[in-house]
Design a protein around this nucleic acid. Structure first.
Lengths: 227, 227
DNA sequence: CGAGCTGTTGATCTCAATCAATCTGAGTGG
DNA sequence: CCACTCAGATTGATTGAGATCAACAGCTCG
């Protein structure tokens, strides 16, 4: 019964969308369910992982910590996304710590199962490569942000991610998590993040109401972000 | 004749080490030689690439530039390494600019050839995945450096990369490129990089002589790097 | 020689971090 | 229903690391 359950869950994961039922069946024995509560740790930095993780529901944060205990969020993994692929392929210790942001369910797929699927279906390998490539690009984007953009530009860049160019010039972005986490994600202190939002609000570019942020003029916001 | 040449070059690339002669032969038609001189641009940020690049000799820098023209080196690609894989798999515009650091020779392998090799040989796909995974981890390391390490820690971390733990407590590291480039790689200005080296030299941790840097006590350097 | 890199040194400035106080609102329990 | 708590968020004052600006030294190479 848990087996049937797992297969259904697997079938709904974007990563496995193009796999046949037979391939999903072959995968299932190598899958372990991982349930966790808010703030529970999936693995610590330095642990060895035997397989990649898929998020069924709940969110997971990947973070690093300095020797002084300052924590820095690298990424927030949403349902349908995966993590720890790179660690699985390399067999090296995890460079980050993974922790539930809220109660959730993960599937851990062991390396041998992925290997089998890759051998059976080259398109699956391609999908994995595309996934890692996207991750890579977003990390390059992060490096770029941290190294050559100001705090204001980082905040605007972040907000613009969530803006839909198709929609009107004015639109509301709701922050997916609390401001402390976003500040960390942007490599800012919560204080600075708050100040930047206020300053942009004073400049008439946006309006803040709790976690809802209204971009008042998309074009102006874009122009500001590039200045 | 150029064909024979290309095959020999391909055979010597780490990425293709486990391929059979027949697979190399199959690859060859999809390969283009790219010769370039120092400071010549391979592709600009925003260009679309039709395939990945292998460095036969010479070195290539990947960099980004801010709107204000500040350049930031993301990575320095050495002979035997590859770049632009992620762009190839995604078909998206390049997020970085690639430029020869000295006269060199690249091989551009078009996506279809890579696809064929992946289908023929699942182990090749695995090797590609491992390569991207390593790239990913080193970028995480970069993000970590930029976000939670001080300039001194970044410099020491960089130098320690080149130190051999097996060797004695004292060893010489020769910088692979000029100090301006390394400073950029570490997200420092050349001025700050120079000052940090001096300060470490004053502290008795190392001695600087042009591009040769002698780490005087590896353990102390490690301890300092973690402080 | 002088032009042009590469690297060093000094003075100053600036952005964001830090430290500290306060505020808000959503629970929690009496 | 209200007092209490406590995490999240804001605001102000101060600090500091590293950038910036500027001058200059050493060198290689035409």
């Amino acid at each position: 019964m848990s087996q049937i359950d797992v297969r259904a869950l697997l079938r709904h994961q974007p990563m496995f969308h193009q796999l046949s039922d037979a391939q999903i069946d072959a995968l299932a024995p190598g899958v372990r369910e991982v349930r966790g509560q808010k703030s529970q740790v999936v693995f610590h930095r330095g642990d060895v992982c035997e397989g990649l993780y898929l998020v069924v529901y709940g969110r997971v944060k990947l973070s690093i910590s300095s020797a002084q205990g300052v924590e820095k969020v690298i990424e927030i993994i949403q349902p349908g996304q995966s993590f720890a692929e790179a660690v699985m392929f390399l067999g090296t210790p995890c460079p980050v710590t993974a922790q539930f942001l809220e109660d959730g369910l993960l599937l851990q797929v062991e390396a041998s199962a992925i290997d089998r699927a890759m051998t059976d279906d080259p398109a699956f390998a391609r999908r994995l490569l595309a996934g890692l490539s996207m991750r890579l690009h977003s990390l390059i984007r992060d490096v770029e942000r941290y190294s050559i953009e100001s705090s204001t530009q980082r905040v605007l860049g972040y907000l613009l991610q969530y803006a839909d160019p198709e929609q009107g010039a004015q639109q509301v972005v709701t922050l997916p998590v609390n401001k402390n986490l976003i500040a960390s994600r942007l490599n800012l202190t919560p204080e600075t993040f708050s100040r930047v939002l206020h300053q942009l609000s004073d400049a008439g570019l946006l309006a803040v109401n709790g976690r809802d942020i209204t971009l008042l003029d998309l074009d102006k916001v874009r122009a500001f972000g590039c200045g």
